[in-house]
Design a protein around this nucleic acid. Structure first.
Lengths: 149, 149
DNA sequence: ATCAATGCAAAACTTTTGCAGTAGC
DNA sequence: GCTACTGCAAAAGTTTTGCATTGAT
């Protein structure tokens, strides 16, 4: 699985006449191992623990490339932080974001997506990516009545 | 229309023991007149042209309050800029964002939204706000074959 | 050997905050 | 008169960029 993603990324790089580097491999490995939402700073600290000389900018640049390759998805929840996660088959693109604890639950509703695509096409729009985002209170935070912010 | 929105905002302010000020009224007026997506800086420059002593921070603070009141909606398209637009009845919350020209087309699909709410509820999630965002190429940009970025 | 990638630091960017002065209630 | 609001500037936060050096092809 890790090898497969890495190969796809290297293929993407060579097609664009870019270079396969240690740091880019480290970022890919970390994303595959994590296999969940993360953001640049978390990844940076994680990698830095094992490889003291990796730079902030390099992680940004690698993630941008990975997003461009389609192997990783960029997610923007409106809190000013760009999140990333490994893309996968049967990927869920629907997010429930809890406005209390910030937790993200993913779900999927193929019926809805099919319907939306149909509408978009009828408006002459060629869809490349898709995101549904619901904000509210998750089951857990509904229990705690007090919302202290 | 402008009066109605302004009254609703003033009501919101007094409920929270906040004050109705010249600057807050200016921001509400501008949002009602514009009646389209905008962002802080555009609004700031627009207001500053007529009222030289309005501050950047004040516009930020007023828009945050307006969003909190529900009279204005916050929209995040993932480019790091928070956009705002006047909320309205029968409001559309579904966006087609063209990745070439950056244009935003809004549409609405009640069926889809109802279906999504049902799914969220079945997951124990209490929905407060809703957003669907499709990225791709609009009709116009599909015509121009070359994508130069 | 060439040219891209790296790490660092500084810059750029949007948004927030601290504070002295001002204005609404 | 009290307390919130304003404008300014500075701070905070994320992301990008410039540059000399290193490393991949």
């Amino acid at each position: 699985m890790k090898q497969q993603v890495k190969e796809q990324f290297n293929h993407f790089l060579s097609r664009k006449h870019l270079k396969t580097t240690l740091q880019r491999n480290l970022v890919v490995d970390a994303m595959v191992e994590l296999d969940r939402h993360t953001h640049v700073d978390e990844l940076y600290l994680l990698l830095r623990a094992k490889h003291p000389y990796i730079g902030h900018a390099t992680v940004y640049r690698a993630l941008r490339l990975l997003a461009e390759s389609g192997l990783v998805r960029e997610i923007n929840l409106g809190d000013g932080i760009t999140r990333y996660r490994l893309a996968r088959q049967g990927e869920r693109r629907d997010y429930l974001v809890c406005s209390d604890c910030g937790g993200v639950t993913e779900f999927e509703n193929g019926l809805v997506e099919k319907e939306q695509l149909k509408r978009a096409h009828s408006l002459g729009f060629m869809v490349e990516s898709f995101k549904i985002e619901l904000k509210g209170l998750c089951r857990h935070c509904q229990g705690r009545n007090s919302r202290t912010h």
